Simulated assay, not measured.
Amino acid sequence: MTNIALITGASSGIGMEFARYHAAKGGDVVLTARSADKLANLAAELEAAHGIKAHVFAADLGRAEGAAQLIQQIADAGLSIDILINNAGFGGRGAFVERPLEDELEMIDLNVKALVVLCHYFGAGMAERGNGRILNVGSTAGFMPGPLQATYFATKAFVKSFSQALDHELRPQGVTVTLLAPGYVVTGFAERAGLEGTKLVSSGGRSAASAAQHGYDAMMRGTLVTVNEGLLGIAVNWVIPLLPRRMVMGMIERMQRKS
Results as ranks from 00 to 15, higher is better:
G205C: 05
A150R: 00
E47L: 03
L79K: 05
I7V: 03
S202K: 15
V225C: 06
A88F: 02
A211H: 04
P100R: 12
T198E: 02
V29T: 00
G62P: 06
P147Q: 12
L39G: 04
R257F: 06
A48V: 15
N3W: 01
A19R: 00
I252G: 06
G26M: 01
E229P: 01
T178L: 11
H55F: 15
C119I: 11
R129Q: 13
A59K: 15
D37Q: 12
M249A: 10
L84C: 12
A44N: 13
I71K: 06
G174N: 10
L232Q: 14
P172A: 05
A190G: 10
P241Y: 11
T187Q: 14
G130F: 09
S203L: 08
L200P: 01
H22I: 01
L61K: 01
R257E: 08
A59Y: 13
S202N: 14
H120R: 14
F189P: 09
L46G: 01
L231R: 15
N237Q: 13
E128Y: 03
N228H: 15
T155Q: 06
I83K: 03
T187V: 10
M249G: 06
T223K: 08
S11T: 02
V177F: 15
G183Y: 00
D217S: 10
E191S: 07
G132N: 07
L179Q: 01
G15P: 13
M255L: 15
E169W: 03
I74T: 12
R206F: 10
L101G: 04
I81W: 00
K38S: 03
T198C: 05
G94F: 12
R133D: 01
A235L: 08
T226H: 14
D28W: 00
G130S: 08
P182L: 10
G13P: 02
A208I: 04
G125Y: 02
Q73L: 13
A43K: 10
L195H: 02
L224H: 11
A24N: 09
G233K: 14
E253F: 12
A58Q: 02
A157T: 05
L243T: 12
L135Q: 07
K258I: 15
V225E: 11
G146C: 06
L166S: 01
Q73G: 09
F143D: 07
L148W: 14
P182T: 14
V186L: 13
L70T: 02
G130D: 08
A68W: 11
P182V: 07
T198G: 00
G62I: 09
I4Q: 04
N228R: 04
G92S: 01
F162Y: 11
G13K: 02
L242I: 08
M107P: 07
A75P: 04
G92H: 13
